[in-house]
Design a protein around this nucleic acid. Structure first.
Lengths: 230, 230, 230, 230
DNA sequence: CATGAATGAGACTTCATTCAT
DNA sequence: AATGAATGAAGTCTCATTCAT
């Protein structure tokens, strides 16, 4: 009888200037969340860095939580876009893998380590403050690599006797671990070299076991055949 | 020069009863920090679970921050102790590695995913709230593995052409990544199987490339040189 | 003496189009204030339901307070008009009373319970936000009934030995109490039946006691005096 | 799997001093809510009038809402207690009714008009902020009168042809209306006189119709018989 | 005239921490 | 040694209102 319609949310402004504001807030919000993590980040700081009032922030984002979610989504989108756009699909899987790792490292290190931390550490508060749509984000985020590994298995470049999930951990794990190190120790990192090294290190584990050995043996046998037939 | 006495720091009580109190608070503190993370954990909750007043907690720990640091230290100590005590040093490196991975996974999963998250996510707030002594803790924490890998290199069971640091990331990285997956998705994990699978996967990458393989590689390289110089 | 011009009050626009705007805002404002009460009503909601910007509302009304006052005034005017227009002055006072009660109940229940609540609950904040002109509004609002009762007294249909004010409370009081019940419990109410029942119930109390009754009462009073003086 | 136990509420202190505090806060809270209504009342003001910090208020009451509920409950309890304790059950129903009306008027006017307003105006926000247990409170509040009227009907002192609910409105309605008048106009009121007048006015309406007339006729007949038989 | 955009002021609430008893 | 009690500081969020365009 008295459904007592929910009171209306003030709609965020829409328009070219508004879009710029949204972008600004997201940019600064990303910084702040990355630096401080969800709990220690304050809307006050976001507003101050932008030189606007706190109310302005809440004009464009309904809550701190929503702002954070958008920050994370945007960042995921950037990574996904960067990888999907630049992936050299015609090249061998190994080179594609190098590209994936390099792109991740690069994007993370430009500004993303804090965000990485944010996602990882806030992701676990499932059902609390953030984390409702996290599983899905996580899925999209790892999708390009999963796809790449699957194609590798199909083409025979990647071993088939290990679940994809585990292979994924094998790639992302060390990568993220290296990033943590950077974050914690503050040591610099040469992304290009690190990416190449890491893939070089991983590759034998991803390949069919003894594959290289088998190929080299075949190569030697054929060379011997050639020399003998001369 | 500075005759003004230092402000009287209230000292924590001493004695056997006091030590028990400290242990109790640390035990419960570990639970609470693990479940909620640093920010969302409250001293209130620690006190309530223990059935004491909040003030009591502050009688034994100067601050929430200090309590958290001690919780983390204790937990590190447990892992280090468990590994050092059980490590089968006489067995091949590969088996020792399996032990290390298994022990980590087990300790993390028994009660530690939250602590893992705690360490990882609070570790990054370098110079803020926690994190002063983190680099040192991190060092001690990874020491057993570093040591193991070094011995492996010395004995020729582990390749020498890759920096230890990278090898360490190769082991810890996927391990932690698997743990995050468990935390985020809530999926169960068979630690024994997972540990064995993971090491099996990593082993080819850690091993010194076999002798035959090395010789074959050298052969191929020389042949390529000859053909190129033609 | 005071050559400083008064601060430029922005004047509300004038013209036929402007009048329509004012009417629209008042209509929607009435809805919103009725549904939510003064404090919980927001200018945002008024604007949104009307499809205009918030600023527009403030173009036509200086403040939320002023809008609310106008809403209440308009509503009073409607009731007063409805009653004055429809009152069957030639009929007996009792029937006129039934008309007054019925009209009140009907207008309140159509859309007015919220407004009734608004008036009653905001009326008390005398000298605060609303309530400056409330006494006057209240007077105009009860004027038709007061007039009716006065005419009843003049014609002998209504007792003269009770102050008008009290008689008014006797009519409005139960009526409003019934309305509150509807508002609070959400129960339905048949206005026609309720109006008739209520007047039937009140009528004996409003009527001049019949001649015989009066004489008998006087008789009893004198007997009691005689007995008491004995 | 991760029920994520709800974080614990800090328990309100218990003890003799604490009880005094609770009483103080309730006393001042009653004042503030009565003066301002729910929305306009602020926890800040409650704290300031008490000369304590705002946090102290929240140490004893979890929220503004809870404080307000307790204020209202206490006030209901006072009225109910006062009436149940003083009701002269052996006297005629009419005198009991006078007592009920008088007690209500008195309690309301001492400090309760604001609270009356509070209950009435906030009661309607059912399912919003307050108002969960309101129907029940309302029931307890009117119970003494309902009971009295029911006993009156049983003994034949009150007419039986009208639903109790309507009779209740007939008593409470004018009473509250008079109170509103006092609140709005600020006029003084002699409670004793007003109570007697009001009941005198209502009584004919509550009695069986023509009842008084019939009784007086019987009285006269018997008196005549007595005189004649002398 | 209408409005997009911004904001000052203030509300409720939480929590680590202190201190007299 | 333990704690009951209090609180300062800070945080998120809401909303009426203004003003340049």
């Amino acid at each position: 009888m008295n459904p007592v319609a929910a009171p209306p949310q003030r709609r965020a402004p829409a328009g070219p200037k508004a879009e710029q504001r949204v972008r600004d807030i997201l940019r600064v919000g990303r910084e702040v969340f990355a630096e401080r993590g969800y709990e220690r980040a304050t809307t006050t700081e976001v507003a101050q860095r932008l030189g606007v009032s706190e109310a302005t922030v809440f004009t464009y984002f309904r809550s701190k939580r929503e702002l954070c979610m958008r920050v994370i989504q945007d960042w995921y989108d950037e990574i996904i876009t960067a990888i999907e756009a630049g992936l050299p699909r015609e090249k061998p899987v190994r080179e594609q893998l190098e590209f994936v790792v390099l792109t991740h490292l690069r994007l993370f290190l430009i500004q993303g380590t804090g965000l990485c931390a944010l996602v990882l550490s806030e992701g676990r508060t499932k059902g609390q403050d953030l984390g409702e749509g996290f599983v899905e984000l996580q899925r999209r985020y790892t999708a390009p690599l999963m796809d790449l590994l699957a194609r590798g298995q199909a083409s025979g470049e990647v071993r088939r006797d290990i679940p994809l999930r585990l292979l994924r951990s094998l790639v992302f794990g060390p990568m993220e671990h290296m990033l943590w190190e950077v974050v914690i120790t503050g040591r610099q990192l040469d992304v290009e070299t690190s990416a190449r090294d890491l893939v070089a290190l991983l590759w034998p584990a991803l390949q069919a076991p003894g594959d290289e050995l088998l190929r080299l043996r075949r190569l030697r046998a054929r060379l011997q055949d050639v020399l003998a037939s001369d």
